[in-house]
């Protein structure tokens, strides 16, 4: 992940578990997750609905609300401090300062009764000692930075007067106003049209290069992962089943779930004469995860051991895969379309 070794580590999440107490029992949404991001690094947590990817992001920010709770054995190391053990006040200083977050639907995060400029200026003033007027000037600068045209005019607009793409830009401007070391982006382009998504993805890439911040991207879209980040962690049923460099994982996935997921997506130029890979069945119930490997009931390769024992992340350099097939090293690489 990092070119300079562990010294450049920014965030290290250890045994993160986030459970929800429900009337039907304990819902283990995130159930023992480990990952790390280097300073200036990029990691995507990818998964389908119910995999626990969004709860993972919220947990890092300690934004999980009741009935959810982060298990006491969890650690969220950020620059040497364990966010899992920080008091609310200390936490407030980290949040929105060193770590900023953007969401899928900016409308829910922007206040409809204040202008966009006022809100960005407010965010600026939280981190810098600036007067109201100077903060507003800084807001215009931030809006220019994220490519909002005629920012001087737009600064007086209310959120509903902006298009979806422009609102997402405004939210990025707000998030970046504190010059964060880590930006958590939870499905930042899912609600956008594909040509606007392309704008926002390019914008985030260029801003990252310019500002040197790390990005934790949460997404369901493997295409977005390939275009945005260097490292990926694939989540299934509350666990990370495979992680490592995107290039390696996409060309030679070691976990059968990753493999099936990649094969189930039609690529440009693929035609219906060749059926797509289908993963049989559905995601298991988070109130009652299956024993052993949680993917075993849907897996094409499962054998006795999969149901009996839960596979840990096994090292198959340069990636790690939680599959018993990887016990003796790498599996045979795939030969089909993704490698073409």
């Amino acid at each position: 992940m990092s070119e300079n070794g562990s010294s450049s580590e920014l965030l290290r999440v250890e045994s993160l578990s986030t459970w929800f107490d429900t009337q039907k029992g304990v819902l283990r949404a995130v159930d023992g997750v480990d990952f790390e991001i280097a300073q200036g690094g990029t990691l995507a947590v990818v998964g389908e609905s119910g995999s626990g990817k969004s709860v993972t992001a919220l947990s890092v920010m300690r934004l999980v609300e009741r009935p959810g709770r982060i298990h006491p054995a969890s650690h969220i190391w950020f620059e040497g401090r364990d966010l899992a053990r920080l008091g609310e006040r200390e936490l407030g200083k980290v949040r929105g300062n060193d770590i900023a977050m953007i969401f899928q639907e900016p409308m829910t995060s922007l206040n409809p009764v204040f202008t966009v400029g006022e809100q960005i200026a407010e965010a600026v003033r939280l981190h810098q000692r600036l007067g109201r007027k100077d903060a507003l000037g800084r807001a215009v600068e931030m809006m220019r930075l994220v490519g909002i045209p005629s920012a001087e005019r737009r600064v007086k607009d209310y959120p509903h007067q902006l298009s979806g793409g422009m609102r997402q830009r405004a939210m990025i401007a707000m998030a970046l106003s504190s010059d964060p070391k880590l930006l958590i982006a939870d499905e930042p382009t899912t609600a956008l049209d594909v040509t606007v998504q392309a704008q926002i993805l390019e914008l985030m890439k260029e801003l990252r290069e310019r500002l040197g911040m790390a990005i934790l991207l949460i997404t369901h879209d493997l295409g977005v992962v390939a275009e945005m980040v260097d490292e990926v962690a694939v989540m299934y049923a509350g666990r990370i089943v495979e992680r490592g460099p995107v290039s390696e994982i996409f060309s030679s996935p070691q976990h059968p779930y990753t493999e099936a997921l990649l094969d189930s997506i039609p690529l440009l130029g693929m035609r219906y004469s060749k059926p797509l890979k289908a993963i049989r069945g559905v995601v298991p119930n988070p109130l009652d995860w299956p024993p052993g490997c949680r993917f075993a009931p849907r897996c094409d390769y499962f054998f006795d051991k999969c149901v009996a024992y839960d596979p840990p992340l096994l090292s198959v350099p340069p990636q790690e895969s939680a599959c018993w097939l990887c016990e003796d090293g790498r599996r045979i690489p795939r030969t089909d379309q993704v490698l073409a």
Partner: peptide
Amino acid sequence: LSANPEPIPGRK
């Protein structure tokens, strides 16, 4: 076509 994100490494 150009904007369509594809899960192919090296498409960055």
